[in-house]
Structures are given as C-alpha cells and as structure tokens.
C-alpha cells in the first residue's frame, strides 16, 4: 500500500502543480519580467525537487527490499558522505548562485529610473493609494486599486498606518511588508495589459482575509486619460436623485471620514470617494462596485466585513438609500 501511494503521489505532483499555473492571484501567472523570472526558478526547483524526492524514495524502497546479502555500497560511510554531503553541497551551491543572481537582478544600477511614484499605505483593512507628482506632492488619492502604464517602471512606497501589512500582487512581484516606522520601496513594471488581484499577506488582525486590491496595467494613452480623470474633482450630479444623494451624504456626517473633491466633504479617515464609482471593487476587493452593493455596504458594512471601522447607517432607508448609492455609483 505504501509503495502504491508513493507512486500515485509522484504522478499527482506535476499535474497538480500545473493546475496552479492559472488564477488571478497566482505568482506563476506572471505579468512582469520579475514574476516570470521567479516563475522559471520555481518550475526548475519543482522539477529538481520532484526528481530528488523520487530518487530518495526509490533508494529507500530498494534498500528495504534488499536481498539477503548486504549490498556493498550500503555499509560504507563514504557513500553516505557522497550522497548526503557532497551532492547537496554541489547542488545547493549552483542553486544559491542562480537565486542570488535573480535577487541581485531586480534593484541594480542597470534598471531604468522610475517614471513616477505611488504611495500605498496599509490600514486596517484597506489600501490608501496616493499618486505622487515629480516633486513628491500628492496628485490624488484613491483606494484599493492601482493602475499602471505598461512597460514603465513605477516605484511604490509602502507604509503602514497601524499594524504590519504586506503588499502582494503575485502576478507582478513578490510581496513586501508595510511596517510602521519604515518605508519600503517596491519597483513594479507591468509587462502586458491585464488586471491582477493583490491581497494583504501579513496577518493584520480582524478582517485580514478581506483586504484585497486590484492592479490594472493600461497602454500609455489610456493611462494618461485615467490620470487626468482621477485628478479632476467629482462631477456635478445631473439628476434630482443624484443631487438628493449628495445632499444626504453631506448632511449625514459621511464627510467626517470621506473626502469627495469638489464638495465640502474632506475627511481623511476613510477612503477618498471622489471617483469611487469607477473603481472595480468596494470594501477592499470585497464586492463589485454597483448601486446595490454600495447600498448594502452603507447600511451595515460590519455585516459584510466584520470589525470594519465604518459605522453602520441604518438611518438610510428606501428612497434615501437608493439616492445615496446612485450618487456614489455615478462618481466615476
């Protein structure tokens, strides 16, 4: 039975690993040179590990089924030294050198200068994203999404507002922690158009599981358009429902935590909602941005995302709630 399991195990290995090749959050589904380099390293290591495992198990099986007379190799210390000492040292030396060359490749002097910088702060439990101008001043602030121009090197400054978080977009790069008191910088270069999911990778309390974001790579012209739109203030509502929604937003204290540029709402505690309708998700990757999800979120965010810092607003009902959600959805 044991041998049978081993065999199946060995057969299952490559198939199962192949399946992992896909998925919006798989590091093996590479969208950048860096992620691709790591993916190649991974595949080579998987293959080598598979071979070594099979060899060791085969050897153990052969040893256990050895004929009555002792195989001569077994009794010699030299053999143990060769297989257990010399072989690993040779293999590991090669692997170490290769791994180090990948480690060193990312941040050397050869890489192009960054096109621009983005400051990302991890907060319990969402991502505050601020695009910075050449002088380091904030251009605009958004939440839970990054957009990048294809092929340009962007540097992301990672900080934390409370506890340790970790910024991880598997499709583009390895993770880097966000630690209070530290600024860590992660260079990102998206190699092709696409959208990748990222998620907090360091346990950060309560709703750690519900702290995701998206990164979208756009062709340069599209990206420029997006930047310009983001920098603009919120559009004036063009219908009665929208105006009612905005009035409710401003009258109910929402502006204490949220900013909507172009209105008196200028809170900085929660996400900037100036263009919330244009973001793919609300609640840090929790739900798609739609009128219905916005309404559900406003009434009782803690039900959707336990321990969330936003208080519930059961005061909004019926028409009021619809108007508020409609206005927020219109902020594209």
């Amino acid at each position: 039975m044991r041998r049978h399991t081993f065999t199946r195990f060995a057969e299952a290995l490559p198939a199962a690993v192949l399946a992992a090749c896909s998925g919006p959050q798989s590091p093996l589904d590479a969208g950048s040179d860096e992620a691709a380099g790591i993916a190649i390293l991974s595949w080579v290591m998987f293959a080598a590990a598979g071979l070594i495992l099979v060899a060791v198990l085969a050897l153990a099986a052969a040893a256990a089924r050895a004929p009555a007379e002792q195989p001569r190799w077994a009794t010699r210390e030299g053999w143990v030294v060769a297989a257990g000492l010399v072989f690993p040292i040779v293999m590991l030396s090669a692997l170490l050198a290769w791994g180090l060359s990948i480690t060193g490749g990312g941040g050397g002097a050869s890489s192009p200068p960054a096109a621009f910088r983005i400051a990302v702060a991890g907060e319990q439990w969402w991502w505050r994203v601020t695009y910075l101008g050449p002088d380091g001043s904030a251009l605009f602030s958004t939440a839970n999404e990054l957009r990048l121009p294809i092929g340009q090197r962007v540097e992301v400054d990672l900080t934390s507002a409370d506890v340790i978080h970790s910024f991880w977009v598997p499709g583009l790069a390895g993770k880097l922690d966000m630690i209070p008191g530290h600024v860590n910088t992660l260079p990102l270069v998206a190699g092709r158009a696409g959208t990748w999911r990222g998620q907090c990778a360091e346990y950060c309390g309560g709703a750690h599981a519900l702290m995701a974001f998206t990164v979208t790579a756009l062709p340069a012209p599209d990206f420029e358009r997006w930047m310009a739109a983001q920098a603009a203030p919120a559009a004036e509502p063009d219908n009665a429902e929208g105006r009612r929604g905005r009035a409710l937003f401003l009258a109910s204290g929402c502006g204490a935590c949220h900013a909507v540029r172009g209105t008196p709402a200028s809170g900085t505690i929660g996400p900037d909602l100036t263009h919330v309708g244009g973001r793919p998700t609300i609640g840090a990757g929790l739900l798609p941005t739609q009128r219905g999800t916005l309404a559900a979120w406003i009434v009782d965010p803690g039900h959707l995302k336990p321990e969330v810092r936003m208080p519930p607003f059961p005061v909004f009902r019926g028409e009021d709630l619809r108007a508020l959600a409609a206005w927020l959805e219109s902020l594209r």
């Binding site: 590991l92 050198a97 180090l100 480690t103 060193g104 941040g107």
Partner: peptide, 14 residues
C-alpha cells in the same frame, strides 16, 4: 563561502 557569495551578485543597499 556561501555567506560571502552574495557580494558577487547583490548590491549592498537598495
């Protein structure tokens, strides 16, 4: 020797 090897490949500080 392994611990010294990285100097060949990796620059000291970012």
């Amino acid at each position: 020797l392994w611990a010294g090897l990285p100097v060949v490949f990796v620059s000291a500080c970012p």
